[in-house]
Structure formats: C-alpha cells, structure tokens
C-alpha cells in the first residue's frame, strides 16, 4: 500500500518534470520550424550581416544582438556589486529587525511589474541622464542598464542570501571560535562555500535581464543601430520582436522575428553555459 502510493507520487512528479522540460524543447522546435525558411541555404548568416531595412527587403538583426548583449551584461555589472553588498549585509551585518524588514522589502521588489520601472525610467532617469550628458536624448544603453540593474537586483539578492544561508553553521561557528571577525568569516568561509548560490543567482538574473522587454522598449530608444557608446540608443531582440510582431503575418519581416527568437534562445543558453563553466572553475579554486 505504502509502496504503491510512493510510486504514484513519483510518477506524478516525473510527469510534471518531463512536461516542463518538453515545453522548453517544444518552444525551441516551434521557433526553428517557423524560422526554417530563413535558415535554409545559409540565409541566416546573410541576415546577420545586412542592415534592418524592411522597405528594401533586408532583415538583418545584428544591431539587436549587440543591443541585447550590451544592455543585459551592463545591467549585471550594475546589479552584481549591489546585490552582493546587500546580501552580505542581510546575512551577517544587519541587526535582526532591520534585516527582516529589508528582506521583506527585497521580496516585495521582485514582484514589482517591469512596466513600473520603465515608467519611472521615462520620467525620472531619462531626463536626468539627458541633462547630465549634454547631448543625446537620454534614451540610451546606460539608462536601460541602470534600470534593468535595479530590476534584477532583488532576484540576485534573494538567491545570494539563500546561498549564504545554506552554508553549514558549523563552519561559521568554527571560524568564530578561531577568533575570525564577522567580515573575515564572511569573506573566507561563507563566500567560497556559497559559490553555487552565487552562480544560480547570476544565471537567473541574466536570464531575466535578457528576457525583459518593457524596460528596453520604453527607455533604450529602440534605434536600429549598433551602440558604440553608453549614450547611444539601442534596440534589444525582445523589444524588436515586440515592435515588429505588429507587421503583416505573411511578410518576410514577420518571419524574420522567429530567427530573432532562436537567436535570443541560443544567446541565453550560451550565457548560462558560460556562467556554469566559469562557476565550476571558480569552485575548484575555492576548494584548493
């Protein structure tokens, strides 16, 4: 009886896991099938080299790849130090009551819809950046990265904090017993042992940054142009898809956004693999 129930439960869980894995694969397959006309005969690479000029039958989206890469990586650069700092503070430096309030606040922040960040960006950040840097409209890579950094920080902070909390208490007690200060314990005991949590946090945050549409759509300016400075406007793959999906269903223009989808998918996968690789190397070092 007991074993039977156990088995049913296991099967149910397995089905759930298989379904979600399958969904991910199916989406990729769907994108590939719809983008197939473009992939045939190496047209895909031709696509990359050309400019985006639907009027003249050219559907290159290299500028959008550059936009996505620039904005999401910069947002990580913005968010990583902040998140590490806040989670350090939460883990060992903050007084209990303050830490609790701060953690609730961070949890609340993960649920704030991105359109609100976008809106604040349009009315507060963009004019500020415009006034600060004389030229340009303020709608640029820098504005979008700063806002996106703020958006992904709470996710990172929560994963980092969980990583720190998962470190075996005995290690910490041992370190304290040897006379290590809180900061020393944090840097030399907690941080190396929380490596996995840090990597997961980075991956989740990068995924969110790459996948986010509204912030870039609202404040990056959406110009089809490879950005050459922080103050240049840029268009990400996601906002490109959002802008172009209104085009005629049967046009080449519309079909080309499936190629964008595939690219975004691959880019995301590549980033996850890269972080895991880098993380594995770092972890080995930590244990030497």
């Amino acid at each position: 009886m007991m074993i039977n129930r156990d088995k049913t439960f296991k099967t149910a869980l397995f089905i759930c896991a298989a379904a979600s894995a399958l969904a991910t694969l199916l989406i990729f397959g769907f994108l590939l099938v719809f983008g197939l006309p473009l992939f045939k005969g190496g047209q895909f690479f031709l696509l990359l080299g050309r400019p985006w000029a639907p009027g003249q039958g050219m559907y290159g989206f290299l500028p959008m790849i550059a936009g996505t890469a620039a904005i999401s990586l910069l947002s990580l650069v913005v968010a990583f130090p902040i998140s590490l700092g806040v989670s350090f503070f939460l883990h060992s430096l903050a007084p209990a009551a303050l830490g609790k309030i701060l953690k609730r606040l961070v949890q609340f922040m993960t649920g704030v819809p991105t359109v609100i960040y976008g809106f604040i960006g349009v009315f507060l950040l963009v004019p500020l950046i415009r006034e600060m840097f004389e030229n340009g409209s303020g709608m640029c890579v820098l504005s979008a990265s700063l806002m996106l950094g703020l958006l992904i920080s709470p996710t990172m902070i929560l994963f980092f904090s969980d990583g720190f909390a998962a470190v075996d208490k005995k290690y910490i007690q041992a370190a304290r017993a040897l006379g290590a200060t809180r900061v020393q314990t944090l840097l030399f005991v907690v941080l190396p042992n929380a490596w996995r949590g840090l990597m997961t946090g980075l991956i989740m945050a990068l995924g969110r940054a790459m996948g986010d549409t509204l912030i870039a759509l609202m404040i990056a300016g959406n110009a089809v142009n490879v950005p050459s400075s922080l103050l240049d406007p840029a268009r990400t793959l996601t906002s490109h898809i959002a802008l172009v999906s209104a085009a005629d269903y049967h046009s080449m223009e519309f079909k080309s956004i499936f190629a964008c989808g595939v690219t975004l998918y691959l880019l995301n996968a590549a980033a996850v693999i890269a972080i895991r690789r880098f993380g594995a190397v770092g972890k080995d070092k930590a244990h030497v």
Binding site: V122, P127, M139, G221, N222, A223, V224, N225, P233, L243
Partner: peptide, 18 residues
C-alpha cells in the same frame, strides 16, 4: 538609423513633451 522608436501616438507625445 539613429532615430529613436516609440510604439504609439501617446508614447510619441510623452517622448516629445519630455
């Protein structure tokens, strides 16, 4: 290609006003 894109008449008005 340096032109900035907005996605509606309303968004255009907001952008120009700001």
């Amino acid at each position: 290609s340096k032109a900035l894109f907005v996605q509606s008449n309303g968004a255009m008005k907001t952008a120009i006003a700001n």
